[in-house]
Design a protein around this nucleic acid. Structure first.
Lengths: 215, 215
DNA sequence: TAGATTGTTAATCGATTAACAATC
DNA sequence: TAGATTGTTAATCGATTAACAATC
């Protein structure tokens, strides 16, 4: 089943599997069955096996899955077995939070550029990276072969900057601006729409009857 | 159809509808059809009508929907027609980013407390709110009748703090810690798992064939 | 070998899309 | 009224769950 198209729902569960595997791996646990994973993740054992089998047969009948092995497979599947060059665009609150985001440091994400349009902070250094004017964005993205751009800017300039990034060959955009960006199909977009998340929270606080519990 | 259980997928689309209604409302557009909404949101007209009809019949045959009216209805549905008292727990990068999060200011979210465990910042003020030691959390949450707690702390202490919040009658938790919190069913949890989002991005950057395009 | 647990197919369930009668 | 567009039912599509043969 390595060829069929894999749905977003499956992909969104992979980081969860990975997180729990790290957790039990750190406890020194060597093997785990889909049933045990089911218990700790809250997903069904059937779904876990089904999900993993989209990518290969990583388990062994009568045994289960080797924790370290499966972790490494998931890293490969999720593409975090290799390094990425990253730029942060917009160095307000969110941008600076992301610079120090611990998720970056563990894995191979390297922030090679920070951009803003405020004269007050341009020229400053943050984590040894000089904050540059957005006008220098294209030069840096091209020269440093940047893979991922983080958009931590308001909605208004986001599409224009995105278009420039695309022209410079960016491969992925992690977008924190509250806007749906238009992109060619070969550039991957992942949105973090905080407004949507917060409104989902308030919805369920007022409509507990629909609340499905922790997802 | 006002009574059937409404799925998460529907709820997650409401903020999107709301955002586009604000957008066209600001342009002075008075009425909009599901077909027009379809064009700008990228969802099908059928789905839009279906979604809205879970909550009531807001449109009018032959006319469409009144933009302002629908906006107000969505505000009621999503529960942002009323104020919320909020505390921020953990005043590192993410916590301070959220304090200034513009989504709060537009709506009725009021930050009534900020907590941290670092002696260096306890006692400081941020946006006129004094940063307090986490030991004072329960007192403030109880006294100020806090509705929502934002967890911007590491995974390790998150469950313990959550248990305290629950004991003080918190109604909702907006969780930025990379952990699946255990909660009674009457306390609503909304997770922002940045690690999951980032790994989804890298997955699709490496498996473009599965990339469904902007979602 | 016997027991356990996977990989995978089939059955069920739920969500999306299509169609159209109702009605403004 | 005629045209447009909703609200809603029925059809389709896809994802989850159940079941079990394969096999370690």
């Amino acid at each position: 089943m390595l060829d069929a198209k894999i749905s977003v729902a499956v992909i969104k569960r992979l980081p969860k599997y990975y997180r729990y595997l790290e957790l039990i791996g750190d406890k020194g646990i060597i093997r785990v069955s889909s049933q045990e994973l089911s218990k700790i993740t809250g997903l069904t054992a059937s779904q876990i096996r089904q999900d993993l089998n989209h990518f290969g047969a990583f388990g062994q009948q009568g045994y289960g899955y080797n924790v370290e092995e499966l972790k490494i497979e998931l890293e490969k599947i999720m593409g975090v077995d290799k390094p990425y060059n990253v730029v942060i665009i917009g160095f307000g609150n969110i941008g600076s939070a992301l610079l120090n985001y611990s998720g970056f440091k563990k894995k191979g994400f390297k922030v090679v550029g920070i951009f803003d349009n405020s004269p007050e902070i341009i020229g400053n250094k943050a984590n040894d990276v000089v904050i540059k004017d957005v006008s220098e964005l294209e030069e840096v993205v091209t020269r440093e072969k940047v893979d991922i751009a983080i958009l931590a800017i308001p909605a208004i300039p986001a599409q224009e900057i995105t278009d420039k990034l695309v022209a410079c060959g960016i491969k992925g955009i992690w977008n924190f601006a509250p806007i749906d960006l238009k992109l060619p199909r070969n550039v991957v977009l992942e949105n973090v729409h905080l407004d949507g998340s917060l409104l989902t929270l308030t919805y369920y606080m007022n409509s507990l009857k629909d609340y499905p519990g922790v997802r």
